[in-house]
């Protein structure tokens, strides 16, 4: 587990938090006080609602439920930092989970199924990236188009039906634990460590921030900005493909519309995490907090039997409120 080794030995000296420019976690969390505060308040509030929120098993549950979201939100952070957008994540997730389930249903092995799903994700990432970087088409409309495309292909491929005969390999893996930590959480933590590493410890990470911050700087540095922007979307597609593994494991089937709207949760999480579509600003810890906030809110409201529809409304209102508060502060 790379993340477990990676975290503790990052001294203040060696942790180059490029994006917020702060020197440690504490400071970085302080840089997103709004969201950390919201998360804290939500946790406190749900704890006193007389539901089983604060039980250890439920805490683990939140982690498991948030894992897919984190897998989507991490690459989406990169995409937003590059002043882009990806509305196709949910639909591609559905399609990838259909593909993954179909391979399993036809007796394919789990690695084969995962490879197929990942390849599909990469394909969509490539389409998004090429259209956006090289043809300079507006990201929202390109990914709206690929959203429809993925959704359409999934419908045609399945006739709107679920694929439920996925064998026992995946459910077993999904339920597995390592040292008591459930498999989905391990995957999520590994993904987090990887993205944290990418953003803060590689040249590529600095290019991501420069895409939105000052593209001219990349040109002057002799970096091929377009090619790296395509890579940002490729990573986005790949992660969605991989997320299909957890998604199918969670719902025990492949369904053509099951991932519908996941991109909204991911967008809310990333925006709550402080990432903005301007000047290349974004942080990985922020996204983590954002994902947990969305996860806690969804879980808590579920426990209180609040309808899924109201949960969506509350997410939207929350993020708009956050943006509103921010714009107020900006005026001062």
């Amino acid at each position: 587990m790379a993340n477990m080794e990676g975290m503790p030995n990052m001294s203040i000296e060696s942790l180059p938090l490029s994006a917020p420019g702060e020197a440690n976690w504490r400071k970085m969390l302080l840089a997103i006080p709004g969201t950390s505060l919201i998360l804290l308040l939500l946790v406190l509030w749900f704890s006193f609602q007389g539901v089983d929120f604060a039980k250890p098993s439920n805490i683990v549950n939140i982690g498991i439920q948030s894992s897919v979201l984190l897998l989507l939100a991490l690459p989406l952070t990169f995409i937003l930092m590059s002043e882009g957008l990806d509305l196709s994540q949910g639909a591609v997730l559905s399609l990838a989970s259909v593909v993954l389930a179909a391979v399993l249903a036809h007796g394919g092995s789990l690695p084969l199924a995962l490879t197929a799903a990942a390849a599909l994700g990469l394909l969509f990432g490539a389409v998004n990236g090429v259209f956006i970087a090289y043809l300079q088409m507006p990201p929202f409309v390109v990914t709206l188009g690929t959203l429809g495309l993925a959704h359409g292909i999934a419908l045609v491929a399945t006739d709107g039906e679920s694929i439920t005969e996925i064998g026992s390999q995946l459910p077993r893996l999904y339920k597995a634990t390592v040292l008591g930590i459930p498999f989905p959480i391990i995957v999520a933590l590994c993904a987090y460590a990887l993205f944290h590493y990418l953003l803060y410890h590689t040249r590529f990470g600095s290019y991501v921030s420069a895409q939105g911050g000052n593209r001219e700087a990349l040109h002057l540095a002799g970096v091929n900005a377009n090619r790296h922007l395509v890579v940002v979307y490729l990573i986005g597609g790949l992660m969605v493909g991989l997320a299909a593994l957890l998604w199918v494991g969670r719902i025990s089937s492949g369904h053509p519309t099951a991932g519908h709207g996941m991109e909204f949760d991911a967008l809310v999480a990333v925006l709550l995490g402080g990432t903005r579509l301007e000047k290349g600003y974004g942080t990985m810890p922020g996204t983590l907090v954002g994902v947990l906030t969305v996860g806690v809110l969804r879980n808590g409201l579920n426990l209180m039997s609040v309808a899924a529809s109201w949960q969506v409304v509350s997410l939207g209102v929350l993020v708009l409120a956050a943006l509103w508060v921010e714009s107020r502060q900006g005026e001062k």
């Binding site: 957008l85 309808a307 529809s309 409304v313």
Partner: peptide, 29 residues
């Protein structure tokens, strides 16, 4: 949202999409 908060139109109206959807599902239950 677009004029006063200067949120880009595609973000503001996309957020609205889901808020409105949520209200509709709640209304119809």
């Amino acid at each position: 949202f677009i004029v006063l908060l200067a949120i880009p139109p595609f973000i503001a109206t996309y957020g609205m999409l889901w808020i409105v959807n949520g209200i509709t599902y709640k209304l119809m239950s």
